[in-house]
Simulated scan of single mutants.
Amino acid sequence: MNRIHQKLQEDKLSKSTTQKLLSIYFTAGYPSLNDTKTIIEDLEKSGVDMIEIGLPFSDPLADGPTIQASSAQAIKNGMTTKILFNQLKDIRKSVEIPLLIMGYFNPILQFGVEAFCQKCQEVGIDGLIIPDLPVDVYHEEYQAIFEKYNIINVFLITPQTSEKRIRYIDSISNGFIYMVSSASVTGSQSGFGEAQTQYFKRIAKMNLKNPQLVGFGISDHNTFKQATQITKGAIIGSAFIKHLTEFGTKNLISFINRIKE
């Protein structure tokens, strides 16, 4: 069984009704080129449920300035797709929680989609999040490849995504849906407004077969709690990158504790 399925099932069987999943995003090769493995191991020790490893790209259109800057620095540090896979080759000797790679389609296409999925399987990656891969293109051209290597592809929905499109995404998904909290780029905010709250409720009423994790704008305990009132969990990216920028790889446990307190 894919580790993402295991985590979602494990959470479903949990006696705690208040336990929500926390997924952390960070950019591979940031702050320093060889920090990737250390950050993953320390995040697992801190109690996070899943980790999204950002594959840096030179033109990250969906990302806000914080993640854009981390991608630029990671590329400057020398991070490449091949180096990332090399850094991850022994990661399953020390880490058990689900690991996903989040990145843009261009580097994956350059590497070769099947070769990329095969390499993900080899090193123990459980899923991919590719914001610029259209769902219909995935369904028609790549789904069979992903399934061959037991890689879950996670799709994003926004407040502007039509109900028809959401149900189509739900029908071909096999893991969770990344529920973007707003139509803006990534970045933290102080809280969610009425429009976002109504959006969360609207999606909940659709009774989708795949659980949803909320991303974009989650930065602290307050926004994590708001985002997870009627969803399975939440994803934190920019706020964690800011922590890495300020403190490096130190005090990761204290950062996670502040979110889950």
Results as ranks from 00 to 15, higher is better:
A62P: 10
T27L: 08
A72Q: 14
L22Q: 02
N77R: 05
E96I: 04
L55G: 05
F57V: 03
A115S: 10
C117W: 07
L13I: 02
A72E: 12
Y30L: 08
E122H: 11
L84N: 05
T80Y: 01
V135A: 15
A72K: 14
D136C: 07
H5K: 15
K12F: 09
P107W: 12
D11T: 07
G64S: 12
K89H: 10
G112R: 07
Q73T: 14
D11F: 00
K119R: 14
G29P: 08
K7D: 00
K45I: 11
K93R: 12
F57G: 04
D35H: 12
I145L: 13
D11W: 09
D63N: 14
S46I: 09
I24W: 04
Q9G: 06
Q118I: 00
P98K: 03
Y138W: 00
C117R: 07
I130F: 04
I39M: 04
G29N: 06
T36L: 12
K89C: 03
F111K: 09
E44P: 12
I67E: 00
G103H: 08
M102N: 03
E114M: 01
G47L: 13
R92Q: 10
K15Q: 09
T18Y: 08
I67C: 08
G103Q: 02
E140T: 15
V137A: 08
Q143R: 13
L109V: 09
I39S: 07
K45N: 13
H139Y: 13
Y30D: 10
V113I: 15
S71T: 07
H139C: 13
Q87C: 02
F85I: 03
P134C: 06
F116H: 08
I145P: 03
I51L: 08
